[in-house]
């Protein structure tokens, strides 16, 4: 009895999971189908009468996708490099020092992690406008470099690094800076690159911040550009809006499918290893 009951449970369990997957992916499939439909039959039932790339060429004609891609790469790349450049030394310092002062600093850092970034948008917007960095790449990037997540994650890694090796390098006369870049960092390459992938993708996907401080047409990132395109089209040309949405999804979905193991690892360490 238990074998057949088990098989039934397995069947039902997987059916529920498949239903969840189907429901989750349905809106994206709908986006894809709509983007490939001829303009006139956007609302004609589930199955398209024909497939066409007209919507895509319409988007490519009216939007400077190349410029937006470049802005996205600069934004995401700048934030990623900045977070690593700042985060690696900071994480190492936190992992080595045991003092009261640094424990406090770290606790404050952890607390800032749970403050939604939106809360500091207003004062940061004021700050950027005061120093004249609105609608500039530096203005978009700098405030986003101050993220505790990477420091937190790398500190965990550096703490797990065998102290004996660090001590040995010091005895051999290596400066802290050399220990970090020649010994600790090369040994943590996989953790660092996983973090970089994660930061890059999540910065690439940001919308509110780049839209707020760099909304000028020449400065728009891909996410901002798609939303701007959609509101210009004012909810009429759904075929081309969905084509623009598809274009905006492609890079990150492709990157995710290729790099999902690293992404899952970095998320799990950040969330679960606490």
């Amino acid at each position: 009895m238990s074998a057949s009951r088990h098989r039934l449970g397995r069947l039902i369990g997987n059916a529920v999971l498949l239903a969840a997957v189907a429901t989750t992916l349905a809106p994206l499939l709908w986006m894809l189908v709509t983007s490939l439909r001829p303009k006139q039959d956007v609302f004609d039932g589930a199955l398209p009468s024909a497939l066409t790339f007209d919507n895509f060429s319409a988007v490519l004609h009216s939007v400077d996708i190349g410029r937006q891609l470049l802005n996205s790469v600069i934004f995401a790349g700048g934030v990623t490099l900045g977070q690593l450049a700042i985060g690696i030394p900071a994480a190492y310092a936190f992992s080595q020092s045991r003092g009261r002062w640094s424990r406090w600093a770290f606790a404050v850092l952890l607390l800032t992690m749970s403050v939604p970034f939106v809360v500091v948008y207003l004062p940061n917007y004021i700050l950027l406008s005061e120093v004249g960095l609105l609608d500039s790449h530096a203005g978009m990037i700098l405030p986003q470099v101050a993220s505790a997540y990477g420091i937190f994650l790398l500190r965990q890694h550096f703490q797990a690094f065998p102290r004996a090796i660090v001590e040995a390098a010091r005895i051999d006369g290596a400066s802290e800076w050399m220990v970090l870049w020649r010994v600790v960092v090369p040994a943590s390459r996989s953790a660092i690159s996983a973090l970089a992938i994660f930061v890059f993708i999540s910065t690439w996907n940001e919308y509110v911040w780049p839209q707020l401080v760099a909304g000028a047409p020449g400065m728009q990132t891909l996410s901002v550009g798609v939303a701007a395109f959609a509101s210009e089209e004012a909810g009429t040309q759904w075929g081309s809006i969905m084509a623009a949405a598809t274009i905006a999804c492609l890079p990150t979905v492709a990157a995710f499918l290729a790099l999902r193991r690293q992404i899952f690892n970095v998320l799990l360490e950040g969330a679960v290893k606490g």
């Binding site: 999971l17 969840a20 997957v21 989750t24 992916l25 809106p27 994206l28 709908w30 986006m31 709509t34 993708i201 690439w204 996907n205 940001e206 919308y207 891909l222 996410s223 901002v224 798609v226 939303a227 959609a230 909810g235 759904w238 809006i241 969905m242 949405a245 905006a248 999804c249 990150t252 979905v253 990157a255 995710f256 499918l257 999902r260 992404i263 899952f264």
Partner: peptide, 24 residues
């Protein structure tokens, strides 16, 4: 497979996710 497929909406930009639902 479940893990990967259920994660797909999480990796697309939130702006696009919202646009798709505006259509839905």
């Amino acid at each position: 497979v479940y893990q990967t497929l259920l994660f797909v909406p999480t990796v697309i930009t939130t702006a696009v996710g919202a646009l798709v639902w505006q259509f839905m």
